[in-house]
Nucleic acid binder design. Sequence first.
DNA 1: GAGCTAAGTCTATTTGACAGACTTAGATGA
DNA 2: TCATCTAAGTCTGTCAAATAGACTTAGCTC
Lengths: 184, 184
Amino acid sequence: MSEATLGAMPFRVDNCSIERTLAVVGEKWTFLVLREAFGGVRRFADMQAATGAPRQVLSARLARLVDEGLLRKVPYREPGQRRRDEYRLTEMGRDLYPIMVALMHWGDRYRSGSDGPPVLLTHRDCGAPVEQHFRCAEGHEVAGPREVTPLPGPGARPAAPAAAPDRTTGAGPDGPPPHGGDTP
Amino acid sequence: MSEATLGAMPFRVDNCSIERTLAVVGEKWTFLVLREAFGGVRRFADMQAATGAPRQVLSARLARLVDEGLLRKVPYREPGQRRRDEYRLTEMGRDLYPIMVALMHWGDRYRSGSDGPPVLLTHRDCGAPVEQHFRCAEGHEVAGPREVTPLPGPGARPAAPAAAPDRTTGAGPDGPPPHGGDTP
DNA sequence: GAGCTAAGTCTATTTGACAGACTTAGATGA
DNA sequence: TCATCTAAGTCTGTCAAATAGACTTAGCTC
């Protein structure tokens, strides 16, 4: 996380959580594997068919996700066949759900064309569409980035003495940036 | 979106919104550019310094994001210098905010180590930490994937006659898959 | 041992990232 | 007019990863 990310904050945060997450999942094939895992697909061949990933890529991604703790292997054996492993989400893996939903919703809104969304996520108990919302710990609704203030957390690190020039203050035709100076 | 994604649903959804979103943003450098854009970073050199992206990669990503409508160019001119362009988020770009927050929160939880999160997103008006929640259109809280049912939406397409084998029903040591059969 | 099936692994080719160097496009001043 | 400057690219050769297609592996069954 850059200095500029925190505007005039006297801290530099380059150990960015976003970047850490991206180091694990920040590329297409991994997301598609996770998408399938959330859908209950567990076997290599099914993953391969569903994602279209080249075998070598899929093999590498699955191994990586197991290594990082997002998936785990579970042995299975079809009658008359050898023992094999399936891949299942761990709790850590399941906690990627908000990311997957957010990706889907953005695509629904901006990339589904005149057809509309192919899948609707509905509340199991009442059938109404599911939405994502921001709320603060005090219970207030938070509408979006403009109502959010990023502050240094416990993992923040001190900045170098020379702060970067602040080039975010030019309120142009669209007003100030989403945040009063930064990151999501 | 694969058949298996919808379990026993007689529909196949391969025009997946997630995949469409990933086609635009599904790789590390693009996410990092967006992270900076949300933080108010607008200029090439600042983006480059903040993300560490090789120039050629950055240039290509910026051009792509402008082309896709997530960023737009705004001319600026420092005194004594030539006219140049900055890059700013469009509304479409800003609507990626939930994805960025979700990426951050996952990283906060699972990848920030003993230091804890470097950045805390707080509610501007009261200072309490901001959280993401699921809620249905009827106003019910939805706790996570197990309370979500994916249904075909207007953009769903009919399946091929032969449904794929259902291999998600084996309730193993961790119970059924996150969804009763599917995608986020 | 032969045949089978699913999960990989291998190989040559193509594509994209990368580091470093170089170019471009206006503004300014002599 | 030309030299200088600055920021935003673009170029080039090298390395890494994706890709398509083929091949191998590991148990089970007969």
